[in-house]
């Protein structure tokens, strides 16, 4: 994957306090090419959000610390930039949207100003021009009432409208990469589909690469070009989406696929994976999935498996694969 837009190498983000060290992200490598959609999946607490926040260097300090790694955006290491240089990247070269569109918007600021602000910051245009541009951006994300909406406050919009406004804000400066952390989780199912369609359409139109964080494999199936499966702060499997869905190699990935809700006799059945994710403060010696794995062997508990490439672009962290 030469000429990757974003390349993440051995990223480690820990939350260090006097009592413990929480290894939320513990050595993650992946890359995204221009115009591709990469989905990061995994159960709650696997480190998806911390990974995406780390890319933007937005992990909550002082406990949260990126302890090592490289995040190369077109070859420039974001982790080595000054805070000032980094702020030029945020919102400009990388846009970000979050799970809760209500709390992610400033409740006392007009939608138009919140969108305009990012243009004033990076495009150095006047506030008046920014407001006009905001109307246009809101139209582009399918909000017909854009003219009025720029003068409204977040509480006056529905959840779906807010998330569209968030997308308009994140896309305002035509970023090369859009980071979306569970952008549809807080929305109704029908609205979810609309928002995903919108992201797809914008991606086609602008050629933006997308990193989409989700725990919903349905979303992955619909959106992903490439997939990264995370478990306990590490990648356990990664590869092209077709590969992952057709030939899942890691027992955790297979278990995840089995846990997709199946409509059967008109009722949803969800086969949850037994057991729980090990605490990020005390990971076991060997494979972190060992305690929940049905295929576990002696060596699994002795040595942490390496991430090995077993097919073209398809890597797995499992002794048995």
């Amino acid at each position: 994957m030469g000429g990757a837009l974003l390349e993440v190498r051995d990223l480690k983000t820990y939350f260090v306090s006097k009592q413990s060290t929480v290894k939320a992200v513990d050595g993650v490598d992946f890359s995204v090419s221009q115009g591709r959609v990469l989905c990061i999946v995994g159960e709650s607490g696997s480190g998806k959000s911390v990974t995406s926040l780390s890319l933007m260097r937005l992990v909550q300090g002082p406990q949260g610390r990126i302890v090592s790694g490289e995040v190369l955006l077109e070859g420039r290491d974001l982790l080595r930039m000054s805070e000032r240089q980094m702020s030029d990247v945020r919102g400009n070269e990388i846009g970000m949207i979050f799970q809760e569109p209500m709390s992610a918007l400033n409740p006392v600021m007009k939608i138009g100003d919140q969108i305009g602000e990012v243009l004033v910051r990076h495009r150095h245009i006047s506030r008046r021009e920014a407001r006009e541009k905001a109307v246009e951006l809101l139209r582009n994300v399918g909000l017909a009432r854009a003219d009025e909406m720029v003068h409204e406050y977040p509480h006056q919009l529905s959840g779906g409208m807010r998330q569209r406004a968030m997308i308009a804000m994140a896309m305002a400066c035509q970023p090369k990469l859009l980071l979306a952390d569970e952008p549809t989780t807080a929305l109704d199912v029908t609205i979810q589909a609309q928002v995903l369609d919108l992201m797809r359409a914008l991606q086609k139109e602008t050629g933006t690469a997308i990193i989409l964080v989700t725990h919903d494999l349905g979303v992955v199936a619909e959106m992903a070009d490439d997939v990264v499966v995370m478990y306990a702060g590490q990648i356990v499997e990664s590869g092209p989406a077709d590969e992952i869905f057709d030939r899942p190699l890691h027992p955790y990935t297979r278990a995840l696929m089995d846990s997709i809700p199946v409509i059967e006799e008109e009722r949803e059945r969800l086969r949850a994976i037994p057991g729980t994710v090990p605490s990020a403060a005390h990971f076991p010696e060997g494979c972190r999935f060992a305690d929940r794995c049905s295929l576990v062997e002696g060596r699994c508990r002795e040595r942490l498996p390496e991430l090995r490439e077993l097919g073209p672009g398809h890597s797995v962290r499992c002794h048995l694969a």
Binding site: S87, G91, G95, F98, A104, N106, M109, V118, R121
Partner: peptide, 23 residues
């Protein structure tokens, strides 16, 4: 969350502090 959003937009310290936090 919205302060995190402000940072994700690339806004700098003083603007975040006055326009988003203080406000």
């Amino acid at each position: 969350d919205f302060v995190r959003t402000a940072r994700a937009k690339g806004l700098r310290g003083p603007r975040i502090l006055f326009r988003h936090v203080l406000r």
